[in-house]
Structure formats: C-alpha cells, structure tokens
C-alpha cells in the first residue's frame, strides 16, 4: 500500500476555499498522489497532435503527454527543446476525455506555471527538454497541479519526491527505442530499495543515516521508504519502450505502469502498436496474452532505434546530480 500523506508543510500549492457552504482543499498530497494512483497499470503515450491523442485514447491509453516533438525528433533536431505550444495542448484537452499531461524544462518554474494555468492534469519536469537550471529542480510543493519526475537511482527519486513530485518514472534513454537504460534504472532503484529495507529491518539507525547522507535526502523520507520497501509514490517505467514485450518486461520488474515516448508514433504501425502495448501492460502476467499483443505489431515497422553506448546526447544525465 502506498501512503498518500506526504505534505511537508502547509505549502503554497494547497488552496483552501469554499464551494457553497462546503470548505474544501485543493492540491493536497492525497489529491496529487491519488491522481497518480488512478493511472496504475496504464500506459501514458507521448503525442504531438490531436489526431495522435485520439488514436492513443481509442487504443486505451490512460493519459497522453503533449510534446512539441517526439523525443527521437528532439534528438535529431538539436537546439533548445521547450514546452509544447499551449494552443495544441488546449486543443488536445478539448478533444480527449483522459487526463492530459505536458512537459516543462527542468527547473523552469514559469513554464510549469504556464502549464498549471493551462490546466493540464500533470506536469512532467523532463530531461527530454533542455534544462533551464543546472543546479535546482522546481520546488513542486508550490504547485496545485501534480508533477512527475524522472530518476535513474533511488537517491534521485527521493530527492524529487522531497521537492514535491507526486509520481516517479525511470529516465531510461528517451528517443532511442532502446529499453536497456530503463531496465538498468528500475533495477538500480529496486536494488537500492532492498538495501535500505534490510538496513531498516536490522534496526541499524546509524547505517540508515549514512544511506540518507549518501543519497542527499532527509532521514525521515529514507526511513519511510525503507519501512515500505518501495517508493512512497507511484513509479512508472519510461525511456525507449517500443514493443508490447518491452512494456510487459518492465511491469515484471515492479513498475506500476508505462510511459511510451517515440515508440508508438515513430513506428509505421502506430495504431496497432498503441493497442498492443496497452494490452501487454494490462495482461503482463499472462505470457500468452503478451504473445497475442506482440503478434499485433510488425518488427519491420518498429522504429530503428539507437545504441545507447555511442550517444552524443545522454538526456538521462540532465539534472541527475542535483
């Protein structure tokens, strides 16, 4: 069971007001983390147009993520990658009933404010875009809209949660069509979780304090995480997922759901592939159903992909030391 309380203080993001005679609160941890809980076992798909968003919704995507360019095109284009056009985000919000997310640059507080005013359902402070601040991420407690952040390790995930992220995803290596880095990242997180859980179970508080110092996060968050033996927020896989089998494999590693970036709309069989990845994510425990899903796609139509060893740009390294 994932805890829902996590507010560090009475933050700016929490809004208290009245509806009729009712006193209400918006932007609490329960609401932000609870939103992520509703996405569990689902697939969030990157889209750049209304048509793609509708294909994603029809295929059974649990949410869409709006970008200006798909990650593999960001990689090709070079230059500075920024948040998507507000007009396109609004068009998509008016066309689909599922939640709509959008990306902002790491540390770019005002891009995030603009997305919050646009009323997107979740903001991804993403390494796919060019970072705006090399040293600090956004202080997400100040927002009413929930955030998702990428992480390659437990320390990175906990630092983002401490800043107010309501959901975590692996970084993987975006836009490569290569799932290897996402696999490494979730395995790293799992190994480190096992390690702090065993320290917690042994009752060695001093060792747990050292772990907190190494990861540069507060002791209380490390203690809470260690006692749970998992991240205290929903954790999805992202980065390089291209096929139903990729998605199902990451689900077996303990991910709560899947983000697909370029994998769907950079393939020649986007419609079938979108459906197939949703089916494989839902029924990942049943190899026969995943086989049926894999059969829906044609490997000759998968995106070509890139070897992650020889990349000029490693997006995953952005913001990882902060």
């Amino acid at each position: 069971m994932i805890p829902l309380s996590g507010d560090i203080a009475d933050t700016k993001g929490i809004i208290k007001e009245k509806i009729g005679s009712y006193s209400i609160k918006r932007g609490t941890s329960t609401l932000k983390r609870g939103f992520a809980h509703m996405l569990k076992n689902g697939v969030v798909m990157d889209v750049t147009t209304v048509e793609q968003a509708q294909i994603a919704e029809d295929a059974g995507a649990v949410s869409v993520m709006v970008l200006d360019k798909l990650p593999s095109d960001v990689r090709k284009a070079g230059g500075v990658a920024r948040t998507a056009s507000i007009r396109i985000i609004e068009e998509i919000m008016g066309a689909v009933t599922i939640p709509v997310m959008a990306k902002c640059r790491i540390g770019h507080v005002y891009e995030a404010m603009v997305l919050q005013e646009t009323n997107v359902d979740m903001i991804d402070e993403s390494e796919v875009l060019t970072p705006a601040d090399e040293f600090r991420h956004i202080w997400k407690w100040d927002f009413t809209t929930p955030f998702v952040n990428g992480a390659r390790s437990l320390g990175e995930a906990l630092r983002r949660i401490e800043e107010g992220a309501a959901m975590i995803r692996t970084k993987g290596e975006p836009g490569t069509g290569n799932v290897a880095e996402a696999v490494t990242h979730i395995k790293n997180v799992n190994n480190e979780l096992r390690k702090i859980k065993s320290i917690y179970d042994s009752g060695d508080e001093q060792d747990l304090v050292s772990a907190a110092r190494e990861m540069k996060v507060s002791y209380s968050l490390v203690e809470e995480t260690a006692s749970l033996g998992r991240l205290p927020v929903v954790n999805f896989a992202a980065g390089g997922i291209s096929t139903p089998a990729d998605a199902a494999y990451l689900m077996t590693l303990g991910c709560d759901g899947i983000f697909v970036g370029s994998g769907v709309f950079k393939a020649e069989d986007a419609k079938e592939r979108a459906q197939a990845i949703v089916l494989a994510t839902t029924f990942w425990e049943d190899p026969d159903k995943v086989k049926e899903a894999q059969k829906m796609i044609d490997e000759r139509q998968s995106m070509l992909g890139l070897d992650t060893k020889n990349l000029e740009l490693r997006m995953q390294e952005r913001g990882s030391t902060a």
């Binding site: 209400i24 609160k25 918006r26 609401l31 919000m93 939640p99 009323n119 997107v120 809209t145 929930p146």
Partner: peptide, 16 residues
Amino acid sequence: ERNAFGRQRDSFESEI
C-alpha cells in the same frame, strides 16, 4: 457527467 468538477487542478477534498 464525467469530469463534472473540472480537471485535476480542481480536484478537492471536503467533508460530506
């Protein structure tokens, strides 16, 4: 009526 109270930013807690 789906999403009757608005989008995520309008999500709320209240005693009922």
